[in-house]
Amino acid sequence: MKNVEHFGDLTPRMNHFREVVLDKKPYIDAQRALLVTEAYEKYKNQTPVMKRAYMLKNILEKMSIYIEDETLIVGNQASSNKDAPIFPEYTMKFVMEELDTFEKRDGDVFYITEETKEALRKIAPFWENNNLRAKGEALLPEEVSVFMETGFLEWKES
C-alpha cells in the first residue's frame, strides 16, 4: 500500500527494487543453522557465553554475503533477500514438524529445497534436547507439564 501524500513517491530505482523483492519467492535458508551447529558442536565444552561468542564469530566469518545493485544499506540474516534463516539454538521442533508443509501453509508460505530439508534433518538430532525451548520446558513445574502434554496449554512458536 502506497502512502504518497505522507512519504512521497519512490524513485524509479527503489520502485524497481520493491517489485523485485515482492516478486521473489521466499525460501527457508539453512546456512545460518549449519554454521551455528558447527560452532556449538566444536565448542560444546565451553561456557554458554563463550559458545554464543564462537557461534557469532563463525557466522560473521563464514556466512554468505550478498549485495544487490539497488541496495544502499546491506546486511541480512539469510543467504538472499526475503529468505528465512533457521535459529536452531532456540528450537528445531516446529521446523522439523513443518519441513514438508512450509509451502502449504495458509500464511507465511516458504519454499524449501530437498537439499535444505536434508541439511536440517542432519543437524536436528544435535539440537533435540540442546536448545532454549528444551531447557525452558525442562524447568516447567510438573503441574504445568501435565497441561502441556494433554494439549490443554500449548507452547506456540512465532
Score class of each variant (00 low, 15 high):
7 F>N: 01
8 G>E: 00
8 G>Q: 00
9 D>G: 00
10 L>R: 00
10 L>S: 04
10 L>A: 02
11 T>E: 02
11 T>Q: 03
11 T>P: 00
11 T>K: 03
12 P>C: 03
12 P>G: 02
12 P>Q: 04
15 N>E: 15
15 N>C: 09
15 N>F: 10
16 H>R: 11
16 H>N: 10
16 H>G: 07
16 H>I: 08
17 F>E: 15
18 R>Q: 13
18 R>W: 06
19 E>A: 12
19 E>F: 07
19 E>N: 14
19 E>W: 05
20 V>A: 09
20 V>N: 06
20 V>G: 02
21 V>D: 04
21 V>M: 13
23 D>K: 12
24 K>M: 13
25 K>W: 06
26 P>F: 11
26 P>D: 07
26 P>C: 11
27 Y>N: 12
27 Y>A: 07
27 Y>V: 07
29 D>S: 12
32 R>M: 15
33 A>W: 06
34 L>V: 08
35 L>Q: 04
35 L>M: 01
35 L>N: 01
35 L>K: 02
36 V>S: 06
36 V>M: 09
36 V>E: 07
37 T>I: 05
38 E>N: 07
38 E>K: 13
39 A>L: 02
41 E>V: 11
42 K>R: 15
44 K>Y: 12
44 K>E: 13
45 N>A: 11
46 Q>H: 13
47 T>V: 07
48 P>A: 12
48 P>C: 08
49 V>S: 14
50 M>S: 10
50 M>W: 13
51 K>H: 06
52 R>Q: 08
52 R>V: 02
53 A>R: 10
55 M>G: 08
55 M>E: 13
55 M>H: 01
56 L>D: 03
57 K>S: 07
57 K>D: 08
59 I>Y: 08
60 L>K: 12
60 L>F: 14
61 E>Q: 12
61 E>C: 05
63 M>I: 09
64 S>Y: 05
